[in-house]
Structure formats: C-alpha cells, structure tokens
Simulated assay, not measured.
Amino acid sequence: MFNLVYKSVANSLSPAQIDEILVESRNFNGKHDITGCLIYHDGFFIQYLEGNVYVVSTLFEKIRVDARHYEVILLSKGSIYTREFDTWNMAYLSNNLPNEAFQYIKLMVNPEFEIPNMSVVPNPTSKRFWLAAKLLLNKIGHENFNKER
C-alpha cells in the first residue's frame, strides 16, 4: 500500500466546480481502489491519496497538469501498512462544514505557514494530521459528509 500527500492553489473555483471534482474523484477512485481525503480551505487544496503505488503515482501525474489548480507541490509519499481512509473513495473537508473541530484543520492548512518546513505539528505531511481529519469525518458521519458536498 502507498500514500501520497500534495498541496496546490485552486484557480478561483466555484462550489459547483469543487462538487464536480469530488464526483469525478469518487467515481475514478472507486473504480481504481483509491481512497483518501481532500481538504479545501481559502483557495488551497491538500489531498491525501492511498492505494496501489502505480495507480496513485499515475493519478498524481494527471493531477499535476489539471488546469483547475496550480503550484502543485508533493509534500510526502511512501509505503503504508494500512489505509487511513478505507471507507471513503474521497472524503472531503472544507471550511463550509459547521464544526468547531475544523478550526484545528484550518490552522494546519493556513497559507501563512510554509507546509514543508512548518514548525506546527502535526502538519499535512504527518500521520497525526490525517488521523485528526479522519476523526473529524467520523464525528460528522458519512451521511452528513455526503450531504455537505
């Protein structure tokens, strides 16, 4: 099993365009046994992908050239023993979710921080960060999460 984390800057996307990205991602990921989480905050994306190394790496190369965002920066990649988001083809968190716990996630993706050299821990390259995202998703529940986006 393999995981990959990247960040990027969105190209002024509307909520409908983000919904389109989620539908495309969930469909593709479901067909290719990829799971993960997408976070969108203040024009920035951070995404965690997990699955087969070849499939995830090939997908990332397509993501890199997608015109809906730019400054795509690989933050981390590597082997993992188990999936973190095994029940989500593509989980989604954004500042649109009415949940106080999202304040923690917002702090970690704040563009004022340089993520690769962040002194704040955990950051999007750490397992603790994604565990916090997963706990937030579990708290919200699959039903609410699917309704939000």
Rank of each mutant, 00 (worst) to 15 (best):
M1Q: 11
F2H: 10
V5H: 00
V5K: 01
V5I: 14
Y6L: 09
K7N: 04
S8N: 08
S8K: 04
A10M: 11
A10W: 03
A10T: 14
A10C: 13
A10S: 15
A10N: 06
N11Q: 13
L13W: 04
S14R: 15
P15H: 06
Q17P: 08
Q17K: 15
D19W: 08
E20K: 15
I21P: 00
I21W: 02
I21G: 02
E24I: 13
S25N: 05
S25W: 01
S25I: 04
S25P: 06
R26L: 03
F28M: 04
F28T: 05
N29L: 06
G30H: 06
K31I: 06
D33W: 06
D33H: 15
I34P: 00
I34C: 03
T35P: 03
T35F: 00
T35C: 13
L38D: 00
I39M: 03
I39W: 01
Y40C: 06
Y40P: 02
D42I: 09
D42N: 13
F45Q: 01
Q47M: 06
Y48I: 05
L49D: 00
L49I: 08
E50I: 04
Y54P: 00
Y54V: 13
Y54L: 12
V56Y: 02
S57I: 03
S57G: 14
E61D: 13
E61M: 13
E61V: 10
K62P: 01
K62Q: 15
I63P: 00
R64V: 09
R64Y: 07
R64F: 07
D66S: 11
A67R: 14
R68N: 05
R68H: 05
R68V: 07
H69Q: 06
H69A: 05
Y70L: 03
E71S: 14
V72C: 09
I73L: 10
L74A: 05
L75W: 02
S76V: 10
S76M: 09
K77W: 04
K77V: 03
I80M: 09
I80Y: 00
Y81P: 02
Y81F: 06
Y81Q: 12
Y81W: 05
T82Q: 12
T82F: 07
T82A: 10
E84G: 07
F85R: 00
F85T: 01
T87V: 10
W88R: 02
A91L: 04
L93P: 01
S94V: 03
N95C: 11
N95S: 14
N96A: 12
L97K: 06
L97S: 07
P98R: 11
P98L: 11
A101C: 08
F102L: 12
F102G: 02
Q103G: 08
Q103H: 11
M108F: 00
N110I: 08
P111M: 06
E114M: 08
E114K: 09
I115E: 01
N117R: 13
S119C: 07
S119K: 13
S119V: 15
S119T: 14
V120A: 10
V120M: 13
P122D: 10
P122T: 07
P124Q: 09
K127M: 11
K127G: 06
R128V: 10
R128L: 14
F129Q: 00
F129H: 00
L131I: 15
A132I: 08
K134M: 10
L136I: 13
L136P: 02
L137N: 01
I140R: 00
I140D: 01
H142I: 12
E143M: 09
E143I: 11
N146Y: 07
N146L: 12
N146T: 13
K147V: 09
R149A: 11
